[in-house]
C-alpha cells in the first residue's frame, strides 16, 4: 500500500457556539493512500461535505487533526493553508462553481494565478487541460454557454491547473443528467489512472462501488 497522503485523527467538528450545537463529525479516523480513488458515502446531513472541507483545509476542526502528506494542516496559518490548497489540492464542486464572468480558459488560468504557473505558460497549459477534458473548442465559452457536463469538465480542468496531488470532489455528478455523468466519470477515472489521489463525496452507491476504498459516514462517524 502506498503511503497515506491523507490522514485524519480523532477529527471532531462542532458547529454553533450557543446552547444549540451541531456535532457534525465525531472522532473520524481515516487513512487514504496516495494515488487511490476513494469515496465517502452517506446520506445527506451526516457530515460528508464537512469531512471533505476539513481534509481540504477549507474549514478548521474543533479538535483532532488532518494530516496531508504528514503535515498537520490545522496547525498551518491561513496563508499556509491557501498555499496548500493552491499547490496540493484541487476542488470539484457539485454546482461547478465556475467564475461566471470568465471564459472556460480564464477560469483555469485564474487558478494558476494563485498557484505556481508562470503567467507566460498559463494559456498553453490551460489549453492542454481543456484538451484533456475534451473541451479544447470551448476555450472562449462562458459558463452560461456550456452544458452542465461541460461546466463540470472545465471545473475538473481547473482543479488540475496547478498539478495537485489530491483532487477532492463534492458530489461531482450530483447535478448532471446520466449522459453528462458518464462523460464526467470517464474523465475522473482517466485522471485517477494518471496517478492522482481522488476523494469523492457522493451518495451514489453505484459510483462508490467503482472506488478502491469506501468510507461510509453516518451521524458524523465512519462506519466500520
Amino acid at each position: 500500500m502506498n503511503r497515506a497522503i491523507i490522514k485524519t485523527e480523532n477529527l471532531e467538528k462542532i458547529y454553533g457556539k450557543s446552547a444549540v450545537k451541531t456535532h457534525a463529525l465525531k472522532g473520524v479516523d481515516m487513512e487514504i493512500p496516495a494515488g487511490s480513488l476513494s469515496c465517502i458515502i452517506g446520506t445527506s446531513g451526516h457530515g460528508k461535505s464537512t469531512l471533505l472541507h476539513m481534509i481540504g483545509g477549507l474549514d478548521k476542526p474543533t479538535s483532532g487533526s488532518v494530516l496531508i502528506d504528514g503535515v498537520a494542516i490545522s496547525e498551518l496559518t491561513d496563508s499556509q493553508l491557501s498555499e496548500l490548497r493552491a499547490q496540493k489540492i484541487g476542488f470539484v464542486f457539485q454546482f461547478f462553481n465556475l467564475l461566471q464572468n470568465l471564459t472556460a480558459l480564464e477560469n483555469i488560468q485564474a487558478a494558476m494565478l494563485f498557484g505556481s504557473v508562470p503567467q507566460a505558460q498559463q494559456r498553453a497549459k490551460a489549453l492542454e487541460l481543456l484538451e484533456l477534458v475534451g473541451l479544447s473548442d470551448k476555450a472562449d465559452a462562458k459558463p452560461t454557454e456550456l452544458s452542465g457536463g461541460q461546466q463540470q469538465r472545465v471545473s475538473i480542468a481547473r482543479a488540475l491547473a496547478n498539478d495537485p496531488e489530491i483532487l477532492l470532489m463534492d458530489e461531482p455528478t450530483g447535478n448532471l443528467d446520466s449522459e453528462s455523468e458518464e462523460e464526467v466519470l470517464s474523465q475522473i477515472f482517466k485522471i485517477h489512472k494518471a496517478g492522482k489521489t481522488i476523494v469523492i463525496v457522493t451518495h451514489n452507491r453505484e459510483l462508490a462501488e467503482k472506488a478502491e476504498m469506501i468510507f461510509e459516514i453516518q451521524d458524523g462517524k465512519i462506519k466500520t
Partner: peptide, 16 residues
C-alpha cells in the same frame, strides 16, 4: 460571496 469562496478554495490568500 460564493465567488470569494471559490477563489479561496483554489488557493487565493486573504491578502489576494
Amino acid at each position: 460571496r460564493r465567488e470569494i469562496g471559490i477563489l479561496r478554495a483554489i488557493g487565493a490568500k486573504r491578502g489576494s
